[in-house]
């Protein structure tokens, strides 16, 4: 009755030192599902995300990904060139700091067009039209298409980064604290945008955040990490409303509600 998982993670371990990194993480991710990874700084969230997105080989464990053609691929059994191909076609990676995910030296339009050019689009007019379409989809003023991202505000840069990733219609997007460092009002707008895009494009998302409100808004399921280990998993509202582990209880009870 259920569709097959998009991502199968089995006992992933990547440790820099004891309790530094992530250990024994396993989960399945299904198409269209949003999985939140929460935990405090240094709990191994970002390490795990790097492993999942083929940017950091784990010490042990396997990650399998089902591609568009329906083949189950062993991520770290693939050549680096196939890994990159996945990263720029079927996946998206949204970094916390937009400058890590954008080319700051070239225009917004070129940033959006890069993935298309990398996958063989050779028609300037089409690239331009697609870039304009995506700019308006992420609520950027299309008049800014030829401006460099250095002239954009933080929120605009983050939206440009999202457009740049979604232009190849990925099926799976990795996000590392996408709203971190933004003003609250800007955060709300970005979250709403993400929520809309996730539903409209049926994206599967793995989102790392330390903001439980962000997790509640976007994620259907949560993984709670502490000192590199998963301490609790479950439906987002269940984990947040009836936390079982001492650490999750501490995390939930520490949040200020205005």
């Amino acid at each position: 009755m259920m569709t097959e998982p998009l991502l199968q993670v089995k006992e992933i371990t990547k440790l820099y030192a004891a309790n530094k990194g992530c250990a024994n993480v396993s989960f399945d991710l299904y198409p269209g599902e949003v999985l939140g990874i929460v935990g405090e700084s240094g709990s191994g969230k970002s390490t795990l995300l790097s492993c999942l997105s083929a940017r950091l080989a784990p010490d042990s464990g396997t990650i399998q990904y089902r591609n568009r053609a329906g083949e189950m691929l062993d991520l770290y059994g693939l050549s680096e060139s196939r890994q990159r191909q996945l990263q720029r076609t079927e996946w998206g990676i949204v970094h916390q700091h937009a400058r890590d995910g954008l080319r700051m030296g070239v225009s917004g339009g070129a940033n959006i067009g890069e993935r298309l050019m990398a996958t063989g689009e050779r028609h300037y007019g089409n690239l331009r039209a697609t870039a304009e379409q995506w700019m308006s989809d992420v609520e950027l003023d299309t008049d800014r298409i030829d401006d460099k991202p250095t002239t954009y505000s933080g929120g605009m840069q983050q939206r440009l980064q999202i457009a740049r990733n979604l232009v190849t219609h990925p099926r799976l997007v990795f996000m590392d604290e996408p709203t971190g460092g933004l003003d609250v009002s800007v955060q709300a707008r970005l979250l709403d945008l993400l929520r809309r895009l996730v539903t409209e494009l049926n994206l599967a998302v793995v989102i790392v955040t330390h903001d439980l409100a962000v997790a509640r808004l976007l994620a259907q399921r949560l993984i709670v990490m502490r000192r590199g280990e998963v301490v609790e998993t479950g439906l987002t509202d269940q984990v947040l409303d009836d936390p079982q582990h001492a650490y999750t209880q501490l995390l939930v009870s520490s949040v200020l509600t205005p």
């Binding site: 259920m2 399945d28 299904y30 599902e33 399921r221 998993t233 439906l235």
Partner: peptide
């Protein structure tokens, strides 16, 4: 009849 306790998240969401 489906058991909720211990069911995978996907089943619960469905």
């Amino acid at each position: 009849m489906v058991e909720l306790t211990g069911a995978p998240s996907q089943t619960l969401l469905e």
